[in-house]
């Protein structure tokens, strides 16, 4: 579904990504692992054209999207749930969710998408008129994911969904992702620091180091790989 072929990305003159290639197949959950500063977020920014790659190819459903401006991504069926969530803090939860469907005009489709999001995260329904900035961290993450679901994405890119959340909430969020994968056939590209958890629910994974992919493979194999265990799972 998503193919990234040897992209190189820079911040100013400094090269951050070196020939990064990765692939996300339809219906998969693929995790990008790596320590802070390994280039995970930069990879996502390059994919979403927020910090365009200088060279390399990015294909979505076999179409080149290197030049596609980021605001057209929802039309393609790609949702980004960014690091730090980027909710609109002074808007209600409902308005935040509605922003997710900004490009759409079919009111009944928007309303049914809203109901589906409330189904997955009932908490959001309870809080629908509350300002998003006053939600707890877990609720904010649910709201950010919910906003991304409003367009019924084919591919959802999540940047550190578990950051700063209590383990119980993280489990809830990952349960929701698995449900979306199996029930709605949503594909996920996931960035995580919580390697154990991410690998347990992923199909495949890539490990990044200093802006390059160093290990790739099936998630279950990685869970048992000595190398990964030592470096990322603290076993």
């Amino acid at each position: 579904m998503l193919k990234v072929k040897s992209i190189n990305a820079f911040y100013g003159d400094i090269q951050i990504l070196h020939n990064v290639s990765l692939e996300v197949g339809k219906g998969e959950i693929v995790t990008l692992l790596g320590s802070n500063g390994a280039g995970k977020t930069t990879t996502i920014k390059a994919i979403c054209n927020l910090n365009p790659a200088k060279s390399g190819e990015i294909l979505f459903l076999d179409k080149h999207i290197e030049k596609t401006p980021s605001y057209k991504f929802p039309h393609l069926g790609i949702s980004l749930v960014p690091e730090g969530r980027h909710l609109f803090p002074d808007m209600s939860v409902k308005d935040n969710l509605l922003m997710g469907a900004y490009g759409q005009n079919d009111k009944s489709a928007i309303n049914s998408a809203l109901e589906e999001v409330y189904d997955i995260f009932p908490r959001l329904k309870e809080r629908s008129s509350q300002q998003a900035g006053t939600l707890s961290g877990g609720e904010q993450q649910m709201c950010a994911i919910g906003r991304g679901l409003m367009i019924h994405p084919m591919l959802m890119i999540l940047d550190e969904p578990s950051l700063g959340l209590a383990p119980v909430i993280v489990d809830k969020i990952f349960d929701a992702l698995k449900l979306l994968q199996t029930r709605d056939n949503v594909t996920f590209l996931l960035i995580e620091q919580n390697a154990q958890l991410a690998l347990e629910c992923s199909n495949r994974a890539y490990v990044m180091e200093n802006g390059s992919i160093v290990i790739e493979g099936k998630a279950e194999e990685m869970l048992s790989s000595k190398e990964v265990q030592k470096a990322y799972l603290g076993l």
Partner: peptide, 23 residues
């Protein structure tokens, strides 16, 4: 209105509003 939501969203987080398709 939708226009109002776009105005508020742009005011609060311009980059991400644009990412959601707001011109």
């Amino acid at each position: 209105t939708k226009l109002g939501r776009a105005i508020r969203a742009t005011a609060q987080d311009r980059e991400f509003a644009s990412m959601l398709g707001v011109n």
